[in-house]
Nucleic acid binder design. Structure first.
Lengths: 171, 171
DNA sequence: GTCTATAGTCCGATAGAC
DNA sequence: GTCTATCGGACTATAGAC
């Protein structure tokens, strides 16, 4: 992240990254499948957290509320590292290749959510739509969280964005 | 598309594509920024259609309905080339790099929708959420359209998916 | 760790369309 | 005279094979 922030993602070579870590280029690719992945490898634990939180949500509440609860858990985790998340996001925002990788990670989250919902008995297309809606809410909340000057925390923004989604779809 | 379908996207070199077209590698890159883009260059006209349809929608209807009308227009256009769309989608489904490119194109559509909504006076975060909800609806409808054995057309599936989204968010 | 294919860039030259 | 299209060759870095 230091090198990507200093010289930009494209200008940074894998050899430079490996060198700063005291390793060789080859070793970098043993740990990360490609040059982008080093910025996203932490996402796996977030996906696990998300799915576990959804699976633990009470069956009595509506699917979209269960998804919101799971997103809250992820939001709370990210909120602990707000400055780190901001620096990381600035790097991603500066490079389309990194945005592509971020989007496929979000799509993977949506697929995992939909899968877990189906396991809870939600039928398609409701399961897919609830999952996609949840990710859309999270995306918007996350953008507000990193961009804004105000200090609202991420779980609050997730809740607020969900309320807004309900409002715009209730026509 | 022929080469990608025959040998797979990764196994196909740009030199082969250029060769079959009677051109050189260098010329390929003049027309397409990268090897993936050749499958997505048609998306620009769809984005224009989408935005024009949204801009033309009457101000009297709710933003999400205006977005749905715009998605209908895109759906109708795609419906004319169902078999082509299916073959193209099979290639994309077989390769993560192509999925990444598809997702960033969809994100671009969402950004354009949100922008047009703002120009119509919709405030944020409602504009972003309406746009993201619209794209989510379209994604799910499109998946059903290419995957299903039944013969429902895309505009119908867009409408059906929107109704489903309204249902799952109205808790 | 070594070797290699290929994507993608940069320099430039050429030539037809209008 | 300008615009746009082609091609050539050298080059670097990523990423995969072994």
């Amino acid at each position: 992240m230091e090198l990507y922030a200093e010289h930009g993602f494209e200008q940074t070579t894998v050899a430079e990254i490996a060198g700063r870590a005291g390793l060789t280029e080859r070793t970098f690719f043993r740990h990360f499948s490609d040059k982008r992945e080093v910025l996203f490898s932490g996402a796996d634990s977030l996906e696990q957290l998300l799915i576990a939180a959804l699976a633990d949500a009470p069956r009595s509440i509506a699917p979209i509320e269960a998804v919101a609860a799971a997103l809250d858990a992820v939001g709370a985790r990210l909120d602990e590292r707000r400055e780190f998340a901001r620096r990381r996001q600035a790097i991603i925002a500066a490079n389309p290749e990194l945005q592509e990788r971020e989007l496929i990670k979000l799509a993977s989250l949506a697929a995992a959510l939909a899968d877990t919902l189906r396991r809870r008995g939600v039928k398609d297309p409701a399961a897919s739509l609830t999952a996609e809606a949840g990710i859309a809410v999270f995306k918007v909340a996350f953008e507000r969280w990193v961009a804004e000057s105000n200090k609202q925390n991420l779980p609050f923004l997730v809740r607020d964005s969900l309320d807004e989604l309900k409002a715009v779809t209730s026509s």
